[in-house]
């Protein structure tokens, strides 16, 4: 299993980073997932989709951390919004920065569906299995995510609570207008 695991790591890491929006957190998630995968390797059925299995472990880990953090800190919005920009940082990444901040404004499960389908190359069927929902649910999450991103970029977003989130939505809209 080790070689397959090594081969899967870049994909796993890219998924973690797209989902969490944070480099360090993504790497922690990958490391934790590797440990769990090895500890539970007897539960993996040979011949089934290892990538999907690993992504399932990783996203479960991510969501349990999200729930824990939510209980611990009610601060959410502000830190999250700034956190997604960690990835962008470098000059010439202005567009990307806007996108990452817009992504952060999506509900986790919509962002997840979008990344699974739009970037990771999983089928709707695989994504449904990974998320433990029906295919139709994945489809609707993806389309709601896209609609929401468009809405954010067009500036037509009303956000519940959190000045900073609202502010960043306005900034994104401004940036998009400048670019158009």
């Amino acid at each position: 299993m080790r070689n397959e695991l090594v081969e899967a790591l870049p994909m796993l890491r890219a998924f973690a980073r797209s989902l969490s929006g944070n480099r360090d957190r993504a790497d922690d998630l990958v490391q934790e997932t590797v440990m769990r995968a090895l500890a539970n390797r007897d539960k993996f059925q040979e011949g089934t989709n290892l990538h999907a299995w690993l992504v399932t472990i990783l996203r479960n880990q991510y969501y349990s951390e999200v729930r824990k953090r939510r209980r611990e800190v009610e601060d959410a919005e502000g830190t999250h919004a700034s956190r997604l920009s960690d990835i962008a940082g470098q000059p010439g990444h202005l567009e990307l920065d806007d996108f990452l901040r817009a992504m952060r404004l999506l509900p986790d499960e919509q962002r997840e569906a979008l990344v699974l389908i739009g970037a990771s190359g999983f089928s709707y069927e695989e994504a449904a299995e990974i998320c433990g929902v029906r295919i139709g649910t994945v489809k609707s999450r993806v389309s709601r995510a896209r609609a929401r991103l468009e809405e954010i970029m067009n500036g037509g977003v009303t956000l519940p609570g959190g000045d900073s989130a609202e502010k960043s939505a306005h900034e994104i809209a401004d940036a998009m207008r400048l670019r158009a």
Binding site: R2, L5, P10, Q31
Partner: peptide
């Protein structure tokens, strides 16, 4: 298209980066 492009860009950037040492040494 912009959404799809950015999604893949974030993903591919991470995909092409070398893995951090602590994960490699773990393996």
């Amino acid at each position: 298209d912009w959404i799809g492009r950015q999604l893949r860009r974030v993903f591919d950037d991470a995909l092409n980066e070398p893995l951090p040492d602590d994960i490699m040494s773990l393996l």
